[in-house]
Design a protein around this nucleic acid. Structure first.
Lengths: 118, 118
DNA sequence: ATATTTACTACGTCAGTCGTAGTACGACAG
DNA sequence: CTGTCGTACTACGACTGACGTAGTAAATAT
């Protein structure tokens, strides 16, 4: 229970990935490391979750893939670039997040209260 | 897309219900109306979701059920009361929520920014 | 040479949500 | 006194996202 349960995150994995793709095209391993770094290891996305998010989002048209052909350096990777639809989806999710926060916080007792009055 | 997608909420429906049960024992229809009211209709829990949450949480020992026997007024209802385990679970979820918020907000662009610097 | 890191793919399972449907009782209107 | 509406559920099945396990294979470090 020290690390965050990913069930909570469900539905926001896509958002996290898209956020990172806003900056530049990227690929699985890099995204994974960035998420780990950004959250200071509080959240580590599972490989299967990550790659299935890629295929799902490509199917939905939020991202497109391309291979790292030229440049003999490193392994062949599958890069993903965010599309306009992906940007819009991200923005919608960002807005939705504000609402979600608001909603859930109606049900969160404030820290340190000794009694249950609300 | 005007009302919040409940997929986001997933994993917090239980928390919401438990929060309301902290105050007093209650039953499905009442809980449902309270959630609607509290969130000013921003979130309306589905009946099936609610009742399956009840049975799941009773199985986990977070709540216990009892019938409204006496008092001939109204229909027979199944009430639920939160247990000590339920209280602890709620508290754990409340703490987890702080973490979750922190994590997700690393991936949320601040409103009104014109460029994508982050 | 070999172990580790990188970079995936495949497959199957599980839990929570939700659509659809149906039951049944009580109150209230016409 | 009959039908409709609000209340209070139960049952069943479908779908989706997350994830455990496993395996492949090239590049890099030891």
């Amino acid at each position: 229970m020290n690390s965050i349960s990913s069930d909570v995150i469900r539905g926001y994995n896509d958002t996290m990935i898209l956020y990172l793709l806003l900056e530049k095209p990227s690929y699985g391993y890099e995204i994974s490391k960035q998420i780990k770094q950004l959250t200071r290891e509080k959240y580590i996305i599972k490989e299967t979750t990550l790659y299935s998010a890629f295929t799902r989002m490509e199917k939905h048209g939020y991202i497109v893939s391309f291979s790292s052909d030229e440049e003999g350096s490193g392994k062949r990777r599958t890069y993903y670039r965010i599309t306009e639809a992906g940007r819009q989806y991200y923005m919608a999710k960002r807005d939705e997040w504000q609402l979600t926060k608001e909603v859930i916080e109606h049900f969160i007792l404030k820290e340190g209260s000794g009694n249950g009055n609300h």
